[in-house]
Simulated assay, not measured.
Amino acid sequence: MTTPLTLTPDRSPQGTARLAVSGEIDMSNAGRLAEALDSGSGPLIVDLTGVEYLDSAGLSVLFAHAERLELIVPPLLGPLLSVSGLADLVTVHGLETNQPPRC
């Protein structure tokens, strides 16, 4: 059974491609996230503030695209991205900092 996942592409006010993700990212639907990230090129802001769960399959997809990503995450995901090392490869904006994306 596939876990519910919603992917909503749009653009930031500065014109950078943006993908809002909500639901749970796990091995049942990580392929959909990979397809969405593969479908474009150039910088991409991925808004994970609506993500309630992220497993290793989802992390693998994000690592595979790290060179072009900038992430917006809820406080729940911040420690996971730090421990995994992904936060060392991409710019991560947490909700508590209120920092806008660079792109």
Rank of each mutant, 00 (worst) to 15 (best):
D10K: 04
L19D: 09
V51I: 12
A66Q: 11
I72R: 09
A57F: 07
A17H: 11
L7V: 05
S28W: 07
S41A: 14
G58W: 05
E70D: 03
S56K: 04
L81K: 03
L37V: 08
P43Y: 01
L62P: 05
E35Y: 00
E35S: 11
T16W: 08
L76S: 12
P79F: 02
L62E: 06
L54A: 04
L19N: 09
T16K: 01
L7T: 02
V90A: 12
T8D: 10
P79H: 04
L86C: 07
N98K: 10
V51K: 00
G78P: 00
L54N: 03
L7R: 06
A34E: 15
Q99N: 11
A34T: 10
L71K: 01
A66Y: 02
P43Q: 13
R68F: 02
S60E: 14
G78L: 14
P13C: 04
R32V: 00
L71R: 01
T97K: 00
L19V: 01
L48T: 13
Q14K: 08
S22A: 15
G23S: 07
L81Q: 02
A64C: 02
E52I: 14
T97Y: 02
I72W: 01
D47T: 10
A57P: 06
R11T: 14
D26R: 05
S56M: 04
A57Y: 06
P43R: 14
G58K: 05
T6W: 01
P100G: 02
P100W: 03
H65V: 06
